[in-house]
Amino acid sequence: MKLKEIVEKLNLEVATPASDLDRDVSGGYASDLLSDVMANSREGNVWVTMQIHQNIIAVASLKELAGIVVVNGRKPEQKVLAKAEQENIPVMLTGLQAFEIAGRLCELGIRGNTK
């Protein structure tokens, strides 16, 4: 499934308009621990988190994630969003909690990384 379909179906707000949403999503990963995401997320994953610290962009870029969904109505600072656009990492926002967004992503057919 393409990221832009997810954005439409889950009514996400795209905080990085310059980033490219026309990319395939390989699966989902939910975590607020950067070391965990570094270790266990996979290329093309959509990452669900409530972290808005600028390190999330570095992690997503390094792991070549498809995008970041920031939950709980939180919004990263402008400089973090600017960095995201520069690295072409789409950042999407929602007022839902991580549990529900992960649940709804699964409902859309996005799968987790099981061995």
Partner: peptide, 12 residues
Amino acid sequence: PSFSTAPDWIRE
């Protein structure tokens, strides 16, 4: 809300 000077280990 979201301003933090916490070191990374605390976030982890």
